[in-house]
């Protein structure tokens, strides 16, 4: 049994304003540094959400809507400022791919380290190593330091590890898009299989197509609030319409 329950969750960031000597000595030099008057940003506002076994939830909304913050909250990385966030089940997450790798180490070592970070024991991750390597299709690239990897290769590595550990809850940020068509298809199949055993997935995406094809529920976030929550096609349609009316139809196809 795994579940996610958010009860009146608020998440407020404190913006750590850099104050330098220049700011003190030169009046007006801070005009690009103002971020709200009290230096805080409310990323999520009074969020109510509950997700149960077997649900695949797509989260859509434009940049800065609070999608990634929501994922990090679910992952336990950001504690809620107020309200309650209860997540039951083993979490595996995949956020931005720019960090979280040991650049000097090769692919194998990174698989091992990532597996440990996701809560595997050394024995367990070593047993799964071969399977992870096969799924990633990285072959000989695994023997090379990951600093030479492309973003697609990072994705293959990270996704393979994150799903191989058989999590109850899989949190994916808009990264799967970095993969090539073949890998995206492969990833989709694997997620389908995972969902057969009643698991939860929360997937942040800008691709309406993927939201519809990969998920069976869709949440539309806007400025930290849930605008709509329901069947993916209906929600993505409504979301696209709102973009159209704002003249921002360049976002997401």
């Amino acid at each position: 049994m795994s579940s996610i329950i958010l009860d009146h969750v608020d998440l407020t960031f404190k913006i750590w304003r850099e104050k330098r000597i220049k700011d003190i000595l030169v009046p007006g030099s801070r005009r690009f540094n103002e971020f709200g008057t009290d230096g805080t940003v409310r990323a999520l506002k009074d969020l109510e959400l509950s997700v149960g076994d077997g649900e695949r939830v797509a989260v859509v909304g434009h940049n800065g809507a609070g999608k990634s913050s929501l994922l990090k909250l679910l992952a336990g990385i950001y504690p809620p400022t107020s309200g309650r966030c209860r997540v039951e089940g083993r979490i595996s997450s995949m956020f931005e791919l720019a960090t979280g790798f040991e650049m000097e180490l090769n692919g194998w070592d990174n698989i091992y380290l990532r597996g440990l970070m996701l809560g595997e024991t050394p024995g367990c991750i070593k047993r799964k190593m071969k399977e992870i390597a096969e799924f990633s299709e990285l072959g000989d690239f695994l023997n090379m330091p990951v600093k030479y990897y492309s973003s697609g290769m990072f994705l293959r590595l990270a996704f393979s590890v994150s799903t191989a550990i058989e999590p109850d809850i899989l949190l994916l940020d808009e990264v799967v898009a970095a993969g090539d068509a073949a890998f995206i298809e492969k990833a989709r199949k694997r997620m389908d299989r995972m969902m057969d055993t009643a698991k939860i997935m929360v997937y942040v995406t800008h691709s309406m197509q993927q939201a519809v094809s990969m998920c069976d529920r869709c949440v539309w976030l806007d400025r930290g609030r849930i605008m709509m929550d329901g069947e993916p096609r209906a929600v993505t349609d409504a979301y696209m319409k709102s973009l159209g009316s704002r003249g921002m139809d360049d976002e997401g196809q």
Partner: peptide, 10 residues
């Protein structure tokens, strides 16, 4: 350790 602290529960 930013990369790890912002992405995992380590």
């Amino acid at each position: 350790a930013e990369g790890y602290l912002k992405q995992t529960n380590v």
